[in-house]
Design a binder for these strands. Structure first.
Length: 501
RNA sequence: GGUCCGGUGGCCGAGUGGCUAGGCAGAGCUCUGCAAAAGCUUCCACAGCGGUUCGAAUCCGCUCUGGACCUCCA
């Protein structure tokens, strides 16, 4: 069995073969830290975190590089190109790097709440100005870029003509051809600087009021957006690496431009497998600033937004994302997230209970059919993940297993219905997949022992009351605890358990 | 206008031609002092119209319809 991934470059699933196994290089486009991350941003970072984790589960040694864009991400539409970062900084009266730090911290906080593993390297654009300038110089030397008024532009037409001959036309990733692009002419203000509207900036001359600026052979300025990813990915992963990931909306022009830049410099398509996650939508529309429908992560966790009926925990969101396939759109709604919240609780409760059970590894199955079924459901975990990371299918199997576990718990099924080895495997695989591969963690309120002591006291008082058939008292304890967010459950064995919201 | 991707039950979503995921919600039953939880059972689908096939949600065509990208975008 081998891993298959959908490669945007070929538009089909391909067997994943690392260039230099067991090492795998993976680059994922990170955030622009000029503002707060929203739910849409969470998807690629959770998706590629799970991919990272699964690759390691398969035994690969992965170098995972995810950048931070802290400069150079300018807007071209306005009268003059403005760096997004410095523009926002003036508005908030912060030093540019102060702003960058603020949103970087917030982003890291959100990533850790999602239990995303930190990447191996998290390079910043401002930390790699030199590498970017070197790359631009090389592109100019090779004749695929030109200078104009202190800015440098990539010559797309020349690139397309020359590299079409070797089967690498501009547009090969997003499946568009230059002729179609030429048809949709739009007048831009600094059109006159460019020889062609398809040309994109490698370096922009900084106007006097621009705060973020660096010296370059072409005067003071700042780098274009696309060049940072090319410079940093080749620096840390080599001229050719295995996986390049990001959101589908980056496919064009960002990733297309990356391919063009790197191909000129290194004569190689930088990455072999291009993986793109689809968008999160609200009522069918992409979540994004232009639609004014974003839900920031801080709002999501606190519930502080008119769109939200309640707060949603990081694990609920993680689970929500894992319930769909990463290449499909995923529609946000309160109903959908509430369903995820309940589903995750059910799954996690049965997992936690079962992981505490002591298994006698020597027993044989008294119900062979069930034993086989459990083994099959477990074996399919790998099979489904190997098929382009079908997390949704793995979760479906987990719910089937959850039913088996709950039946054992409620004694509808005897514990030795499945064999000792199968039970051990069940414990092990659930833990491996839920915690190590899917990166889910329990979200219980931290308890220092005091709370537990108090609750056990109340549970005992209630038990006494129940014994006297004093249901007034027992219900009062249960109802008032419920109002405080503590749920009591009378278990089949006569004991009482609780859960804290 | 160009390029591309979808339309699955009340909601979110898997679905590689035949074995008709899964979750949430709804209904019934079991258990329970009552709950909750859990278990069992059950209801509700493949946008429409043709075609291919013994058989189609799945392949082909057309129609309707939603969306993404082409500009910053995860």
């Amino acid at each position: 069995m081998s891993l298959k991934v959908y490669n945007s470059l070929s538009r089909q699933k391909e067997i994943f073969t690392p260039i230099n196994a067991p090492y795998v290089g993976m680059y994922v486009c990170g955030p622009t830290v000029s503002g707060e991350s929203h739910l849409g941003h969470a998807r690629p970072f959770i998706t590629f975190d799970v991919i990272y984790r699964y690759l390691m589960y398969l035994g690969y040694k992965v170098r995972y590089v995810r950048n931070i864009t802290d400069a150079g991400h300018f807007e071209e539409e306005g009268r003059e190109a403005e760096d997004k970062i410095s523009k926002k900084a003036v508005l908030e009266k912060l030093e540019p790097m102060e702003l960058v730090q603020k949103y970087t911290n917030l982003y890291h906080w959100a990533m850790s709440r999602f239990n995303n593993l930190p990447p191996s390297i998290e390079p910043t654009a401002t930390g790699h100005i030199v590498e970017q300038i070197e790359m631009i110089k090389k592109i100019i030397e090779d004749g695929y870029a030109y200078e104009a008024n202190g800015s440098v532009y990539f010559d797309v037409a020349k690139y397309n003509t020359d590299f079409s001959k070797v089967g690498k036309p501009y547009g090969m990733l997003s499946g568009r051809n230059l002729e179609d692009q030429l048809d949709t002419t739009r007048e831009l203000d600094n059109q006159d600087e460019k020889r062609d509207k398809n040309d994109f900036a490698l370096w922009k001359s900084a106007p006097p009021e621009h705060i973020m600026r660096w010296n370059s052979p072409w005067g003071e300025g700042f780098p274009g957006w696309h060049i940072e990813c090319s410079a940093m990915s080749s620096k840390y992963l080599g001229e050719e690496f295995d996986i390049h990931g990001g959101g589908m909306d980056l496919q064009f022009p960002h990733h297309e431009c990356e391919i063009a830049q790197s191909t000129v410099c290194n004569h190689k398509t930088p990455a072999r497998y291009w993986l793109h996650n689809n968008m999160i939508t609200i009522q069918g529309k992409k979540m994004g600033k232009s639609y004014n429908n974003v839900i920031k992560l801080t709002e999501l966790f606190s519930g502080d937004s008119p769109i939200l009926e309640q707060p949603y925990s990081p694990m609920t969101i993680r689970f929500f994302i894992l319930q769909s396939h990463y290449r499909g759109t995923l529609d946000f709604s309160n109903e959908a997230l509430q369903a995820s919240e309940k589903a995750l609780k059910r799954l996690w409760d049965s997992y936690e209970w079962y992981s505490k059970q002591t298994i006698d590894a020597t027993t044989t199955a008294t119900d062979n059919a069930l034993d086989e079924k459990v083994k099959k459901l477990l074996a399919e975990f790998d099979e489904f993940m190997d098929d382009d990371f079908s997390t949704a299918k793995v979760l479906a199997n987990m719910f089937d297993l959850s039913s088996v576990i709950n039946s054992i718990k409620d004694k509808h099924i005897v514990a030795d219905a499945i064999s000792g080895p199968t039970a051990t495997l069940l414990q092990k695989q659930l833990k491996t997949y839920l915690e190590d591969v899917f990166g889910l963690v329990g979200e219980r309120v931290a308890d220092n022992g005091q709370l537990d002591g108090v609750l056990q006291l109340l549970i005992n008082i209630r038990k006494d009351a129940k014994g006297r058939k004093d249901f007034m008292t027992s219900d009062k304890i249960r109802n008032e605890l419920a109002a405080l967010g503590v749920q009591l459950k009378d278990e089949k064995d006569g004991g009482t358990s609780y859960s804290v919201n």
